[in-house]
Design a protein around this nucleic acid. Structure first.
Length: 206
DNA sequence: AAATCATACAACCGCGTCAAA
DNA sequence: GTTTGACGCGGTTGTATGATT
């Protein structure tokens, strides 16, 4: 089916948001919420498309957003989740309160990927008794990582649940992936399952 | 001090999915 | 069952800023 254009381009502003626009958007959402992103800019008096408003809110203006640098633990967690989940940034972000998928994606591409390519260990490995220290070197990521993501279709949620919680080795994760029978692409399902597995992610106090 | 390069982050684009009509 | 509109996600690009030469 044909894809509807996200918005009318003519007359709409693009590029960086001004403080006034931020304020207008934040005020509107504080008062009315965002039941309909497409209609929101019109009602809020913004010359932006709904998609742009949503992105701005989700990635920058939302009070849930935690600003500041990623901790070594957070970076380590991203690396490990990425090894398991691949480029499912939204799922990874769900395990990092206050962090957005876009932010995590940026960090991955700017720091973490490079670090892995350089053959370095996750940052937390440098810490004494770091969670991720399992006595093995991370393998250099190659271009097949995205395929690996797709291949996760056979990874069951319960397998991953315990794995992450128990600090399973990458070998364990691989084994689970190869022996599992189903994987739901439903993100909510995944998040739910991951969370139901208990305190699967021992997030550092931030 | 100026020019160039590298990095980090914000934003946009296109696609897939889902629900309502 | 099909079509359509809206949302969310991941990939990519643009730009500001800092570091280096």
């Amino acid at each position: 089916m044909g894809r509807a254009p996200c918005c009318e381009k003519d007359g709409l502003k693009r590029g960086a948001w001004s403080p006034e626009e931020d304020q207008r958007l934040a005020d509107y959402i504080a008062r009315h919420g965002h039941p309909n992103w497409r209609a929101l800019p019109k009602h809020a008096g913004l010359l932006r498309c709904g998609k742009s408003c949503r992105l701005r809110w989700v990635n920058y203006l939302s009070p849930d957003i935690k600003r500041g640098n990623f901790t070594a633990d957070e970076e380590d967690l991203i690396i490990r989740l990425h090894q398991t989940l691949g480029n499912r940034w939204s799922v990874i972000a769900a395990q990092l309160p206050g962090r957005t998928d876009n932010e995590i994606k940026n960090v991955w591409h700017s720091h973490l990927k490079k670090r892995l390519e350089d053959g370095l260990k996750p940052a937390a490995d440098h810490d004494a008794g770091g969670r991720a220290s399992h006595g093995h070197q991370l393998v250099k990521e190659d271009t097949s990582s995205s395929e690996a993501v797709t291949d996760n279709s056979f990874l069951s949620s319960t397998d991953v649940t315990g794995m992450i919680d128990l600090g399973a080795t990458d070998e364990d994760l691989s084994l689970a992936m190869s022996s599992s029978s189903n994987w739901s692409d439903d993100q909510d399902f995944w998040i739910k399952m991951l969370q139901e597995g208990g305190d699967i992610i021992d997030l550092p106090e931030l």
